[in-house]
């Protein structure tokens, strides 16, 4: 598997039916869709704003639409995709609530993944008086694109408040599932969401 292969790809693939129609928001270089097309023969479309990422996605032979997610998904019909994926991008969105609702409108099912701000390594750094920098949050406070960081507990509350159904939840650290005290021990949160 290529160096770009991320630990969350395999889990995402497990949650996607064979031959599904998949929309990947913020698809970067299209690696996830390339992987899903190869393994599950999905019909994939990526959305990417950045020119360089957009071109790399095209180079991989993946359909890619250049647009800014902040403006919503108005170019997509309701329930027109089997699965809509937002992989490690939620924390960088300005209009967080809007995009989650848009994803649930367009997709029959939604997969969201994000770095858990409640992870113990992050908490220790905060106790030591510094903003956390880690593998899952590799930026300094002054150059981070992450403006809406949250913990697993925060996201659970967000789903409850917005009447979003959690079909499945998986918490990973170094690629391994965490079952005990996930909000403290988990680095990466992965959710399967549906409209309630």
């Amino acid at each position: 598997m290529s160096a770009q292969f991320r630990q969350d790809f395999a889990v995402i693939a497990n949650w996607i039916p064979f031959g599904a129609k998949v929309l990947d928001l913020g698809c970067e270089d299209g690696s996830l869709l390339k992987f899903l097309e190869g393994s599950l023969e999905v019909k994939g479309y990526g959305i990417e704003k950045d020119d360089a990422y957009w071109l790399n996605t095209l180079k991989q032979g993946i359909n890619v639409i250049q647009m800014d997610l902040e403006s919503g998904l108005s170019g997509f019909e309701s329930q027109s995709f089997d699965v809509v994926v937002l992989s490690q991008t939620l924390q960088a969105m300005r209009n967080t609530e809007k995009i989650v609702h848009e994803m649930l409108r367009v997709g029959k099912e939604v997969i969201v993944t994000f770095p858990n701000f409640g992870y113990w390594r992050h908490r220790i750094q905060l106790i030591q008086g510094q903003m956390p920098v880690s593998k899952s949050l590799p930026y300094e406070w002054y150059n981070t694109p992450n403006i809406h960081l949250c913990t697993i507990k925060d996201f659970d509350d967000f789903c409850a408040k917005n009447k979003i159904g959690i079909k499945e939840r998986l918490i990973l650290t170094h690629g391994k599932p965490i079952h005990v005290m996930p909000n403290l021990m988990g680095a990466l949160a992965m959710y399967r969401l549906v409209s309630k």
Binding site: D51, W54, N63, I65, M67, G75
Partner: peptide, 21 residues
């Protein structure tokens, strides 16, 4: 152009769209 893209997407056709600065 986005109107064209939407009509193609609605028909599940193979399409890429670039908005060049």
């Amino acid at each position: 152009s986005k109107e064209i893209v939407k009509a193609l997407l609605d028909n599940e056709l193979t399409v890429s769209y670039a908005e060049v600065t």
